[in-house]
């Protein structure tokens, strides 16, 4: 009998901890049951100052030091400006995308932020059943009454990284690491190669996919093999935590560099490997979404992010980038902005 009780207690403790671990919420929304009651009251009386709520789903972790962290911070920044409450669920598997979004929709969230092309199908499915909940799909290509796509120009990102890599490479070999073969990743790789070849026709581009966004050990192996086998000296990646592993491998060699994205890495952390970053400002695009939700004009559009509206920008350079290359690069970025760099 006592064994049964002990096992029951253990199970309860375990489940409680799992729940805490999975859905640790942002401080603004952990004020407990009282605030829940308040917000219910507000919605009942339908006063003007309704608290809007935004939720984010993620297949990696928000503390992955890459894509997940950047998207989460973008949501927090935008939510602070627009007065939204935030909530997130991370480390989801593909099968959990739709159910998680459904529960957020049932909980009365106004806006659901799905930061990536890989959520497209799940968003479409859930959005059809919840016409009153709005969805923001980053890197998406869907436009319906309640889905808005946010589309940072992957081609420009690829061009910018490729041009810098091409200008900086001394061995004429540059590398690219992808996480999964997403549409945006493919476009980035393609334009990375094109841009590098445009600035240096002798350049050779090597690429590999880690098949994961979190296996940093694999990133290290890929970078290691690219350096030792192909003498790659500048790398660019689209695989968040995997890129951190690659940077770690590069730091073991002399004169090997990496280009960061989507945050401005050198503005946050010192590094002898990162030479610059291609910065994507998702917060600005999310802000437009949140304003639309408030105004009630949501839906049927794609918010494009590129160099001209500041959603994509050039990050901090390291001292390893010589002045003349920097100047040349900024000229090219200007051309990319005008659309005259590579004519389609």
């Amino acid at each position: 009998m006592s064994k049964k009780i002990i096992s029951l207690i253990l199970t309860i403790v375990m489940f409680a901890t799992i729940l805490v671990g999975c859905a640790s919420s942002n401080s603004t929304s952990t004020t407990g049951s009282t605030s829940q009651v308040e917000s219910d009251d507000v919605s009942e009386s339908e006063t003007e100052d309704k608290t809007y709520k935004v939720a984010m789903i993620l297949d990696s972790s928000i503390s992955d030091g890459g894509w997940g962290a950047a998207c989460y911070n973008a949501m927090i920044t935008a939510a602070e400006k627009c007065g939204f409450e935030t909530q997130y669920t991370d480390n989801l598997t593909t099968a959990d995308f739709a159910p998680t979004m459904r529960s957020y929709a049932d909980m009365g969230f106004d806006l659901i932020f799905a930061p990536g092309n890989q959520y497209t199908d799940a968003v479409k499915e859930v959005a059809a059943d919840y016409p009153n909940v709005y969805f923001a799909l980053l890197n998406g290509t869907v436009e319906t009454d309640n889905i808005v796509s946010l589309l940072p120009d992957a081609q420009q990102i690829g061009y910018m990284a490729g041009a810098l890599a091409g200008l900086m490479s001394k061995t004429n070999s540059i590398g690219f690491i992808g996480g999964m073969e997403l549409d945006t990743t493919k476009i980035k790789l393609e334009s990375y190669e094109k841009a590098a070849k445009a600035v240096n026709s002798n350049i050779q581009v090597y690429s590999a996919y880690a098949g994961s966004f979190s296996d940093s050990a694999k990133g290290k192996e890929i970078a290691d093999s690219m350096v030792t086998m192909n003498d790659v000296d500048v790398m660019f990646g689209d695989a968040s935590a995997v890129d951190s592993g690659a940077r770690e491998a590069l730091s073991n060699y002399e004169n090997r560099y990496d280009i960061g994205q989507p945050s401005d890495l050198l503005a946050i952390q010192e590094s002898d490997v990162v030479i610059g970053s291609v910065v994507t400002d998702n917060a600005a695009m999310l802000e437009i979404c949140m304003e639309d939700v408030k105004k009630g004009t949501y839906g049927n559009k794609t918010i494009y992010g590129d160099l001209s509206n500041g959603a994509i920008s050039v990050g901090t350079f390291s001292d390893d980038v010589p002045e003349d290359i920097k100047e040349k690069y900024l000229e090219i970025v200007e051309q990319i902005k005008e659309g005259t760099f590579i004519e389609e």
């Binding site: 799992i18 671990g21 640790s24 503390s63 911070n73 480390n91 935590a241």
Partner: peptide
């Protein structure tokens, strides 16, 4: 159960200790 519990606990502790940063924290190798 361990497979569900332990990674969630690890993720929780990491977030509490290091917060959410745009780069990963590095220790000694």
């Amino acid at each position: 159960a361990i497979n569900i519990f332990a990674p969630a606990l690890a993720s929780f502790i990491y977030k509490i200790y290091f917060g959410i940063s745009s780069t990963l924290v590095q220790a000694t190798l």
